[in-house]
Structures are given as C-alpha cells and as structure tokens.
Design a protein around this nucleic acid. Sequence first.
DNA 1: TTCGATTATGCTCAGGATAAGTATAAGCCA
DNA 2: TGGCTTATACTTATCCTGAGCATAATCGAA
Lengths: 318, 318
Amino acid sequence: MAGATRKVGKTGAANAITADLVAVLVAVTDGEPKIMTIANDGALPSGPFEFAHRSLQTGLRAWVEAQTGHPLGYVEQLYTFADRGRGGDAKSLHSISISYLGLTREDKVGKGFQAHWSGWYEYFPWEDQRAGLSASLAKTLASRLRAWAKSADTTALQRERWQRAAITFGLDERDWNEELVLQRYELLYEAGLIPEAARDRSTAAAVIPGRPMTGDHRRILATGIARLRAKIKYRPVVFELMPAEFTLLQLQRSVEALAGRLVHKQNFRRLIEQQQLVEETGAIAAETVGRPAKLFRFRHGVLAERAVAGTKLPLSRT
Amino acid sequence: MAGATRKVGKTGAANAITADLVAVLVAVTDGEPKIMTIANDGALPSGPFEFAHRSLQTGLRAWVEAQTGHPLGYVEQLYTFADRGRGGDAKSLHSISISYLGLTREDKVGKGFQAHWSGWYEYFPWEDQRAGLSASLAKTLASRLRAWAKSADTTALQRERWQRAAITFGLDERDWNEELVLQRYELLYEAGLIPEAARDRSTAAAVIPGRPMTGDHRRILATGIARLRAKIKYRPVVFELMPAEFTLLQLQRSVEALAGRLVHKQNFRRLIEQQQLVEETGAIAAETVGRPAKLFRFRHGVLAERAVAGTKLPLSRT
DNA sequence: TTCGATTATGCTCAGGATAAGTATAAGCCA
DNA sequence: TGGCTTATACTTATCCTGAGCATAATCGAA
C-alpha cells in the first residue's frame, strides 16, 4: 500500500497473490465441542479460493455441503491473515488466508473424505475450565509462565510479563475470562511454550500439553473459539448447534461446553425463559435418570420479531 | 474451493488474484464524526496490497502515517469482501478488498494529498438520530419503505418486508437500534432506494438523500460505523478519538456523535466514573459558557490492570 | 412400599445496577 | 443583582443478578 491515494479499482496487476479459505466448523455432541479437521487431525479444512460462487460465503457453504452432505447453519467471517512471521518462508507472504466460522450439527462425514470431528479442547486443554484445570496442567502452566516472566531483562519488563500472564490466565486471584482465547494463545506462542513457536523460530523449548496444527491453524481456531464464546452471550447462536428438540439441561451443557465454564442452573433457566427464546414442544424427554425434563424448541420467531439487541448506552428519552 | 480436503498451502497458482486495502479512518471534531475520504470525497482511502510489511496492520499504519503525518491509534480489521454482484463487471471477481477500521485524532492532512475529512452523516443522514430525523427525511423514508414493501407479490412477502423495515428503522413504535447500520444500508440497497443500487442494477428508482460512494465503499463505511458503535459500549475506544485532556461533556458529545443518539448526562457520568476509566487532571476547562468543568484524562492503566471485560453468563461459583 | 438418589422446576431474598429526576454550585453577562 | 448556562451531587423506585432453599417427579434398590 504505497503512499498514494489511488482511485479504487486501479489495482496493480503486478501484485498478484493467491487466497485460501480456512474454515472453523463447530458442532457440539454430548456436551463436547468439536471441530472438523483434516490431514490426520492436524489441520483445519481449507482450500484454494475459487471464483465459481457469488460470494465467499456461498462458496464456503457449497463446499461444506459437498463435504458433509448437509447444509451449514450459521456462517460468519473471522479474519484475514497475511502475516509473514507465522507462515514460515517468504513465499507465504504472497498468500492470504480468509477464515470463517461455521456452526452446524455434527453428522457423519461422507465416505471417501478424510475429514473428522475432533474435540477442540484437545488443541486447547487449558481452555476447559468446567471442572477446573487438572492439578498437573495448572502447575505446569503457572510455573512455565512465571519462568518466562522472570527471564525478561529488566524488572519492569518482568513485572509487565507476569501481569499479562496473570490477567489472561486468571492467576493471582484474578477471575478467569473465557473470551481471552486468542490472547492466551498469543502469549504462549510468544513465551515459546507451544510447538508452533519452536517450529517457527527454531528454538527448542519445553512445551505445554495441547496438540499443534499446521501453519497458522491453531491461531485461527483460537480466533474462532473466542468469537463464538463472545457471540453466545448476545446472539442466540447456540441453537444452531442444537438438535430440533432439546431439554434445558442439554442447552445448558452446550453453552458450558463452548464457554468452558459451568453456569448456575436456575439462573440460566430464568435467563432463557425471560428472553422467550424457547417454547415447550409438549413432549417429555425419554431415557433419563431422575425426573424427566420437558422438551423445548427454539422460537424462530424471535429472529424476525426483534432485532436481538446489542448492549446499552445510558440513553436519554428526549 | 472445490470439493477436496487438500492440505494447506497447496494453493493452485492458477487462482491468482489481486488484493486491495480499504480503510475507514475515523476522527471526531467538535462533536461530529468524520472519515477520511479521497477522490473528491467519493471514496474511502484505498490502494493495492503490497508485501513490504510484516503484516496487513503494519502496512496500513505506515500508509496512514505517510498520508497524515501522525500515527494511527487503534486499528482493527473489518471485513474482506469478494462479492460479485456489487463490484459490477466480472473482472472485479478476481479482486478482493480487505477493509480496516482505524481511529485517530483529526489532523491536517499533509500538503499535496487529496485526502479530506468528511462528516460521516453526509453519507448516512438517517443514522443521525441525535435531534431526531428531519421531518422531511423521516416522511420520505417511511413512505418509500412502505411502497417497497407493498410492491412485493404476495401479502406474506409484503408483511415480511415491512416487518424488516420496521425493525431496522425503528418504525411502528419500535425502538431505534443504532447498531443496525449495515442492515439498514443493505435494506435500502435491496429496495433500490440508493444510487448504488440503481448503478449496479441499472434500474432507475427514486433515491433518498445521502451521498453515494464508489463501488462498495459506502457498504464498507456502514460496516465500520456499525462495528464502532458496538465497540464503544464494551471497550474504552472512544479515548482514541479524544484529545489528551477533555471534559466529561466533551466525552459525552463524542459518544453521542458516534452512536447517533443522545445519552442521559448524569447517568453517563456515573458510568464513566464507576468504571474508573478517567482521572482528574486538576485543571479546569477554560473558555466555556456556564460553570467551568473539570478536565479529565484517560487512565491508561486500566488497559494493563484488567482484561476490560466482555459480557456475562450466569456463572456458578463451584 | 418406602427410601434414597437424581434430575427438574418453582420461589425467595438481598444487593447491586439502572433509569430518571431534583437540587445545588459556579461561572458569565446584562 | 438576577438570569442564563453548564457542572455536579444526591435521591428514589425499579429491575436485574447471584445465590440458595424447597418441592416435584422418576427410577431402582432395600
């Protein structure tokens, strides 16, 4: 982007590049969030960008449909990456990756495809705080982060590093913030605690648990998880991941799975009901232990009825 | 993106495309939101994507700095567009636009550049609800939207159209939602009520007030405004647009300018103060009518101290 | 048949946040 | 000095939220 205010459309043909689409496809089964993976579960589904479709979104939809045999529910663009450092060689500079988040219900992948569903916490063990972290992981994380902080040159920098680690990982009595998925990943990368960092910088360091992925893919996945965790709080997107009928506990378990945290049962119900997001089907859940639960369905009407609100300003009425 | 799960990086060299960067650069002066424009104020600053920088962001920063002579504060990626329909000819299909939102303080643009700052409500008159819409604009809008709804074939479709219009534009006693900037623009486009629609589809229709832009640019601007309006509610980004010292009323006027709505003065102050976002400088504003106000500055500390929170789930403490 | 385990669902209650307004303070200017 | 304007403090009713208690319905084992 040279220092000229050129008119739009006059793009220099010299700057030809290639574009890839990368997809974070999410489903939830039995209270576990899954993502679609390929290449022996070491990569996100991706492929070259083609111009056969009206838009990037429709192209992605068609492609996923061809892969899984059923339509994609909710789709949203995540981010476009073109960074050098991460990709590796200089050649990668001439390629950009446009990433998408897609929500669907898990389904059998068509025969002849190598795609699978993998639990997303395989790649981010520290993001699952539902039962608290395992004692060993918690200890490893804390000590490695502290070591990284201490390895800084000045005490000011040391304190700064530790503060960052403490904020993002909820250490030192701070609260855990489930939305900081990307910040945590970036920090671990910077601290050299994950295999991708060692690979890109050829520094061998002690890494922490969590499966790596090709190229930037784990970073893209982190972006997707973060986006989804933020989104479920103000848009009714969870329902894209649920079957047509479900109990409130199943709904709660799905939210907990995505957020990586447990929620208060009664308050969760009150929230859902007061927003009138669901309605009873009249049926009752079978095959349960304990008192059987009512089945609910999503009220599709809400999408049409109201512009499912964002957050608030202290508006004045005049 | 053909139906194959190829391994990442194996991009077909046949699919070479060009990429543009487009920037929505925002400043607020005297309680009016401005955007940087070029080409006689008919386009957003943009240019071909080059690979001279480490990332897209640093490229954008360097470019803006060269243009305006001072550094860019906050930068965030907006969206990557590659749609056919909008661009016009088939050739545009082979180009994608990566758009960014940038916040800065207005400043003189360096000599020899054609860039200017334009008020963003020139392009979206209906988005400024601070004093309510002018009677004429309100009437024009409502009647044109109603006509569009009525022109649908079936009564079901007519009702659906009107409901959409009513929700997005706050008609029929509904509340205005300032975040639906893009939805409103898209609806007006679909209804053929803006020049861009007439241009793309060569249908001559009665258009409503509001200055058009080249290509997709007004849509990109709508995306930027929507993003910013959502963001000011949960991240302290307004401060990127303020001078080093300001009164609380100036801060309020800036928020109102961006949101396009008036806020309750006392409650706004309480909100700001309880979040401890600002601190008194000790100085007092000069040159005012009425009682002089205290000057405040942004507490940069908050960015480091806490992970400025997102919204909430009904968490359980166990 | 009853008890215990398990899950569902209803209800309460205190504390905090919010919306809206009233009251008072501190300048300027005629 | 009185009136105009803006700043800032305080009040009040209402709603929302976190947290916990109580009861209901089902199953299976004693």
